[in-house]
Computed example of a mutant assay.
Amino acid sequence: MMSILTVNHLNIIDTKTNKVIVKDASFTVEQQTCLGIVGESGSGKSMTVREIMGVNPRWIRSEGEVLFENRNLLEDNDKRRRSIRGKKISMILQDAMTAFNPIEKIGAQMNQTFVQLLKVPKRKAERLSLESLEMMNFQEPRTVYGSYPHELSGGMLQRCMIAIALVMKPDVIIADEPTTALDSINQLEVVKQFRSLKELTGTTMILISHDLGVVQRLADNVIVMKDGEIVEQGVTSTVFNDPKHAYTQYLVNTRLQLTNSFNDSLLSGVKAKP
């Protein structure tokens, strides 16, 4: 399988404190697969993907290579980086509410995105918006289209963001903690939508999450990060079923303990019923 994006010896430094946030990270993302990046808060996973997108603050400096379309993105100027954002590499943010302008309706914002980035007429942009909302299984896509962001739930806004990505058909979609702010029912729904997005478009995905269950459902390969370093990587099932690094073992065991205690509480609830 061909690689679509390769990261070589990436170092990310905070120039204000001289702290190395990510140290010597190297990995490959293969075409039409999903790469999961897991680790606790502060492990460097979000900073890594934001450097790929070129959206880290200006005082963040990076060294190494991020190879995409036969060029090192880290050497590109701002204009060239902006030209690939959204169109070639798209990012679905952790807090969907911050991705939308609170005083503009969802449909208007979707239309604007498609007119600007796809260079289509406004009427076609409207049609694309409604069609993509239908594909996201909204029961009333026109109502969603005419709603303001605050009128929709976090899960619905996530699905609107996925709908935009569905139309843009980027080569790579980066999802940064897409299920963190959602309850378990909405989490399951978003996981299903990501899976259908991957199947419908054949896009490549990078999924950042501290939730091993979500990563297990979606990712073909996984990277485990701790304190800015990659401590383990490989096929998801292999890494989770036979973790080699002590930190990965800790993450997997913690996940199993949570799952078992949840199942136990469900069973005890069932037993308690008359």
Rank of each mutant, 00 (worst) to 15 (best):
M2Q: 14
N8G: 06
H9S: 15
I13W: 01
D14G: 02
T15G: 10
T15R: 10
T17K: 04
K23V: 11
S26M: 12
F27Y: 11
T28A: 11
E30A: 06
Q31W: 00
Q31R: 12
C34H: 04
S43V: 08
S46P: 04
V49C: 06
R58E: 12
R61W: 00
E63I: 09
G64Y: 01
G64D: 02
V66C: 01
V66N: 03
L67M: 14
N72K: 09
K79H: 11
R82I: 13
S83Q: 13
I84G: 10
I84F: 13
G86N: 13
K87I: 15
M91F: 05
M91I: 15
Q94S: 11
D95V: 14
A96C: 09
A99T: 07
F100L: 13
I103F: 04
K105N: 08
T113V: 14
F114W: 03
F114Y: 03
V115N: 04
L117R: 07
L117G: 02
L118T: 03
R123S: 06
A125V: 05
A125W: 00
R127M: 08
L128A: 06
E131P: 04
F138H: 06
E140K: 13
G146N: 15
P149C: 02
E151Y: 07
L152Y: 01
L157A: 08
A165C: 13
M168R: 02
K169V: 04
D171W: 06
D171A: 15
I173Q: 00
I174G: 01
T179Q: 06
T180I: 07
A181S: 11
D183C: 09
S184M: 15
I185G: 01
L197N: 03
K198I: 05
R217K: 10
L218I: 13
N221M: 07
M225Q: 01
K226P: 05
E229Y: 06
V231T: 08
Q233K: 14
V235C: 07
V235E: 14
T236Q: 12
T238R: 15
N241D: 11
K244A: 11
Q249P: 02
Y250M: 14
L251S: 04
L256E: 12
T259Q: 07
T259S: 01
N260V: 09
F262W: 01
N263K: 15
D264A: 10
S265L: 11
S265G: 05
L266V: 15
L267P: 03
G269K: 08
G269D: 12
K273A: 12
K273E: 13
P274F: 05
P274A: 14
